[in-house]
Design a protein around this nucleic acid. Structure first.
Length: 407
RNA sequence: CGGAGUGUAGGUCAUCGGUAGACCGCCGCGUUCGGGACGCGGAAGCAGUGAGUUCAAUUCUCACCACUCCGACCA
């Protein structure tokens, strides 16, 4: 992509008013645009990062045998009445009325999934079922904040699994938990599995995937030597105390960002929605449900919170909008041919072909945060300067070596 | 929803009871080109919205709206 052809230029200044790092950097670097509090456009750069995040999630979900699909966002009131959530979720659900009919905008999909599966299954042989989609969630947040981390409209991957027994559900539940940890790792994030309360979703304890970060809005307590970790909502005690689980470690209090969660919903929804299957003996039993969420747009923000310096963002390779950022300094002809060579090899490259000062191009490269910066100038002669965003090391390499490194 | 702060050019900010100014960006010309370079010229604003006070309001007062932050709540 030629920079001259890219929609969404960088801004010279940080936007005023924005305090959160993710909002400041994503807005200034041209990854997102704000329509209103909690509602953002993903500009081409931001869109590319989110697509990469989604692809990693998709890989890992598919590896568990889950099916991707897509469900609607406009829901009839009646379906929500079946579980009573039209009333209990009123605070968070956007509800609207048109010609005497009432609708809700999706803030989650349990009811829709249940309706879908119950219409299409009868026998225990049809289970388990694992289906997911990426879609927009609307939530009427009392206060949208922290840039893109808490929006009123955001993208979420939600997976739902339906089983004939609690044991089978739990087995898959932990399989997904493992897939989640792997998913976050592939983006460079170490997530902790943290026990939490289920909120509007379930009375059972659930598990959140928390990335340690000072800017996080959650407070968690975790053990420094075993895997014990609980959210503030349910943890009893204080930091510094011995771990109640292993008795050896010490409890640490920390701020964290919740990037995913999993809910062992059980049979509560299926009982309310009269969703049963016929078992081996011909008797009706309620289906056991679980749901699992990851927020790709929240991850976009989280990655910036975790990976940045005073000059800009530092994207992990796996989610960077482009693999390389090519800068031409008074050498457009040479740079053009390097650009074509990279593209030919299938390397995703952002080529800054502007007629502007070198300093501006360097500053923008640091701000945008693509992992590898390539410079072509009269100084580099027939070679190309290669520098990684997170490092100060600069190498002068022939094109073949650059191609090798980028592949 | 409670509390605090902020709304002036595309962005960041000045100004001040007498109808608006800088820098950046943008457009044109030229010189430049290794860390946001320079010169000259130019375009760009109903000062968030509404009301009040006043001879006169961007400036003072009130209301509303929007945004940011703290709290409550929450992926």
């Amino acid at each position: 992509m030629r920079y001259s052809n890219l929609f969404g230029k960088t801004l010279r200044d940080f936007p005023k008013d924005e305090v959160s790092v993710n909002a400041k950097y994503l807005l200034r670097a041209g990854f997102i645009d704000k329509l209103m509090a909690g509602s953002f456009t993903l500009l081409p750069l931001g869109f590319r990062v989110v697509e990469k995040i989604k692809q990693i999630i998709r890989d890992e979900m598919d590896a568990t045998g889950a099916n991707e699909m897509l469900m609607p966002l406009l829901h009839p009131k009646e379906i929500w009445n079946e579980t009573g959530r039209w009333e209990t979720a009123k605070g968070i659900m956007f509800q609207l009325k048109k010609d005497n009919k009432e609708y809700g905008l999706s803030f989650t999909h349990e009811e829709i999934v249940m309706d879908l599966i119950r219409k299409r299954t009868q026998s225990f042989k049809d289970f388990p079922i694992k289906i997911y989609h990426f879609s927009t969630k609307f939530r009427d947040e009392p206060r949208a904040k922290s840039g893109i981390l808490r929006g009123r409209e955001f993208i979420m991957k939600d997976l739902y699994s339906a089983h004939t027994s609690k044991e089978d559900m739990e087995k898959y539940y932990w399989e997904v938990a493992k897939a989640y940890i792997k998913t976050f790792k592939r983006m460079g994030l170490n997530a902790k599995i943290v026990e939490a309360a289920g909120g509007v979703f379930t009375d059972a304890h659930t598990h959140e995937f928390q990335v340690l970060c000072e800017q996080g809005e959650d407070t968690i307590y975790y053990c420094d030597s075993c895997d014990f970790a609980q959210n503030k909502e349910i943890f009893e005690g204080k930091g510094g105390k011995p771990c109640p689980k292993c008795k050896k470690g010490k409890i640490i209090e920390a701020k964290a960002i919740e990037v995913g969660n999993i809910f062992p919903l059980g049979t509560m929804y299926s009982e309310k929605m009269h969703f049963h299957f016929t078992d081996r003996n011909g008797s009706k039993k309620p289906v056991v449900l679980a749901s699992y969420g990851i927020g790709p747009t929240r991850l976009l923000g989280t990655l910036v919170e975790v990976f940045h310096d005073d000059k800009g963002i530092i994207w992990p390779k796996s989610v960077a909008p482009y693999g390389a950022h090519l800068i031409s300094i008074n050498s457009n002809e040479k740079a053009d041919s390097v650009y074509r060579a990279l593209e030919k090899e299938g390397i995703e490259v952002l080529y800054d072909d502007r007629e502007t000062g070198a300093g501006e191009k360097f500053a923008d490269a640091d701000l945008i945060g693509i992992p590898v910066r390539l410079v072509v100038s009269p100084k580099t002669e027939n070679r190309i300067e290669y520098k990684e965003r997170g490092s100060e090391k600069i190498e002068l390499l022939p094109l073949e070596d650059v191609l090798k490194k980028l592949k």
